[in-house]
Design a protein around this nucleic acid. Structure first.
Lengths: 229, 229
DNA sequence: ACAAAAGTGTTTCGGCTACACCCATGC
DNA sequence: GCATGGGTGTAGCCGAAACACTTTTGT
């Protein structure tokens, strides 16, 4: 433990992760079945304590690795929840993260082993404490991000069709997009690369697979989806 | 002190505030001259410890009240900085806030009494620890916010001209805006109300003063400034 | 033949930009 | 009269949206 010259109150600090995934045309969320009090047996976000000598980001990565076996996961800070009464088990300040992971790459056994489960985003159960509010915040942040940056690299498989990307966007924004306009908009960004392979399972005619360009550091764009309609 | 059933590491948690103000056609920042180690004598953000039984928001409000005498200040979370080595005095997790205050309404004596000072945003001195990075983050957040929401209510005096608002926006975005187009865009939002008074000090002809509409709960708009040019 | 997704083209509309241009007034 | 900011008008461009239409192929 680091010695500190400060003489002031200290607090339990936790991280809670909203983990987004995409599978079977649905936006999903990885939730944990609590095995300890308080609220044992209910569903909650995946979380953990922040240890000495680690950043809150490292703590979140540790939690993710523990539950999914994955490293180098996309993580972003969402918000801090600090109501002294938010956790009946004691005063805990929680730093909330959202993560995006590729369901096809993670360790399914590790997930079940920990009592976690993937839930369709729009069918998730009520969560403990203020976790529903956290999910709400993370969803807003995800929408904001997806509105000015092409996301999907961390959610979709390495090759995917424009249809799959559109369905992902429709799941995130919970609205539909015109197929023709969506395709033109997305491809005009020059962020995707067309592969020579076609998908023939989702359509009769077959659709080209695309992947994110390697070189493309900045997947930034002016605007992909207009918010605040 | 609240009793806790948890047996895990605890941490010092602080808040640091980036306090924006507007005066003499300039975007300003309230900084503090450190009177204690480490880095005594250097400039830093205004900060304080999070106490038992208060939210991080309350802690930030407390700091603001202490330095400016103001309550009900606009506050927004920016980011959490948690590098174990960020503060040489010990391991401190810092929650960063940005605030907007009306310089004309605050308690100037209280500010000097605490060794704080208003600095022009683009002429601020280098700050201690990771505080420069925090300011950077807050500035980005301010730009984002100002891009889809008309800000100024918490920075400008209660009545102001379109010119003053434009100068504020130019200070925030560090670019110029076409006077005619800016005026039309802003007024088309129907968020401002024209008063019957004119300002005759800044121009010969005199310009109408405006104020934010009272009823107007949502000052949201599609987009005011296009980001990511 | 029909359905269903793939992919392209076209038209319309509205907002943003870049100006030009008049107004009012102090110097 | 001239400079300065106040304020209005307008033409051109470009992207978003709506939607028509053709292609391909499995059933």
């Amino acid at each position: 433990m680091t010695t500190s010259q400060y003489k002031f109150p200290t607090h339990h600090v936790a991280v809670d992760c909203i983990i987004f995934g995409y599978e079977n045309e649905k936006l999903k969320l990885l939730l944990s079945h609590r095995r300890f009090e308080p609220e044992q047996g209910k569903w909650s976000l995946l979380g953990g304590w922040v240890e000495e000598n680690e950043t809150v980001e490292k703590a979140a990565e540790r939690v993710l690795l523990q539950y999914t076996g994955l490293k180098d996961i996309y993580l972003e800070q969402v918000h801090v929840f600090s109501d002294p009464a938010r956790d009946p088990g004691g005063r805990v300040i929680s730093i909330v993260f959202f993560a995006m992971i590729r369901i096809d790459k993670h360790d399914k056994e590790l997930v079940t082993e920990h009592g976690a489960k993937w839930w369709a985003f729009n069918k998730k159960p009520a969560l403990v404490f203020d976790h529903d509010q956290m999910v709400e915040h993370a969803h807003e942040k995800l929408k904001l991000k997806a509105s000015y940056e092409l996301i999907g690299k961390n959610l979709l498989p390495s090759k995917f069709t424009v249809l799959q990307l559109r369905i992902l966007y429709e799941a995130i924004f919970q609205r539909s997009f015109d197929p023709g306009n969506f395709r033109k908009k997305i491809l005009s960004l020059k962020i995707l690369e067309r592969l020579d392979v076609k998908n023939t399972t989702d359509s009769k005619r077959g659709a080209y697979y695309y992947s994110f360009r390697k070189e493309n550091g900045l997947s930034f764009s002016e605007r992909i989806v207009k918010l605040h309609s």
